Computed example of a mutant assay.
Amino acid sequence: MRTRPIPMLCGAFMLTLLLALPAFAQELTVSAAASLTDAFDAAKAAFESKHEGVTIVINYGSSGALFRQIEQGAPVDVFAAANPKWMDRAEEAGLVEPETRTDFARNTLVLTTPAENSAGIAKAADLLEDHVERIAMGTPETVPAGQYARESLVMLGYWDTLAFKYIYAENVRAVLDYLRRGEVDAGFVYRTDAMQGGEEVAIIEEMPLKNPVTYPIAIMKESGNKELAARFIDFLGSDEGMAILEEYGFSRP
């Protein structure tokens, strides 16, 4: 009886395996607000561990920048924004499946300083002091955390008075970096981001807002993997998914 050499057998087996892989491998592309980075990285790992062959690719950025990428045709299956505004824009543009839209988490906006707090800031009113010179926030036009910061400062009557002190950043994580490096006197970030700053960042106080900071999520109309997208969104709303979000400082919607 003729036998095939071991290398040939291995080669034939590997070829069969490679040909079979595309039938099982699935990739889900998620565009998510920068403030979700740590929580979504953990959720991604947990979800992938339960779904063999599934890979989740996450693109993080400011919600406004992500919306513009999607608007320009970026291939995305799921969009998770840091406020309703950009999801509203996506829905109005016909980019999402409206029946899949849901709020999955909440956050709070906080005034923070570098850990040493050399400016001695104890409350928002202290930002008016002359020795406080640099206040960081996300660009309000594209960054939800910046939009919330502007809303809060307008409510307090400080917005125009402090205008010359603002240092704008492309997303909330860039504000956190300014704080960590001590390049600003104060900054506005979400509580979840401040938590990731650890001992390098001090939370001074929670800022007042008209409405809670809510995070909507939805499946894109052009998604080629809507069933898997729905499973990922369901996972985020499950007890396990919510436990991950809460571990990183988010609360239930």
Rank of each mutant, 00 (worst) to 15 (best):
M137V: 08
I135E: 09
A105H: 08
D130V: 12
Y148P: 01
E141K: 07
R4M: 13
R4L: 12
Y178L: 01
A186S: 11
D77M: 09
M195G: 00
M207C: 12
M137K: 11
A90Q: 06
F79M: 12
E71D: 10
P140V: 13
L209I: 05
M137G: 11
S238E: 05
L245C: 03
M195C: 00
R181T: 11
R252C: 04
A119T: 13
F67R: 01
K221F: 08
A65L: 10
A119C: 08
T16E: 03
L15S: 08
E151G: 02
D193I: 14
A39R: 00
A23L: 14
F24D: 01
I244Y: 02
T113R: 02
T100D: 03
T142M: 04
V189M: 00
L19D: 05
E97N: 10
D103A: 08
I121M: 00
A80H: 04
E246I: 05
E52W: 10
P84L: 10
R180H: 01
L66A: 13
E52G: 13
A23G: 11
E240A: 13
D88P: 02
T161Y: 11
R150C: 03
A12I: 15
A39C: 04
L127N: 06
G73D: 06
I6E: 07
M195Q: 08
E183Q: 13
F188W: 09
F79Y: 13
E247V: 01
V57C: 01
Y168M: 10
Y248I: 00
L162F: 14
S35P: 00
G53V: 11
D130I: 09
N117F: 02
Q26R: 14
T214D: 06
A124W: 07
I56T: 07
A122Y: 02
E222Y: 09
N83S: 15
D88F: 15
I70K: 06
E129F: 10
V110H: 05
D77W: 08
I167L: 08
A243S: 14
Y168P: 05
R4H: 09
N171I: 09
A74H: 11
D239I: 06
K123F: 05
T214Q: 09
P144N: 15
R252Q: 14
R150Q: 15
F164S: 13
A20R: 00
F13G: 05
Y215R: 00
A119G: 09
L245A: 14
R180I: 05
V184C: 01
D193R: 01
L19P: 01
R89P: 00
Y178F: 14
P98N: 06
L21Y: 10
S31H: 15
M14H: 04
R89D: 10
P84G: 11
S238C: 07
F250W: 03
I56P: 02
R173S: 07
L19N: 04
Q69R: 12
A169V: 03
A39T: 03
A218V: 11
E129G: 11
A93Q: 13
A194S: 08
L176H: 05
L15N: 04
P216V: 12
V143N: 04
K210S: 14
R68F: 12
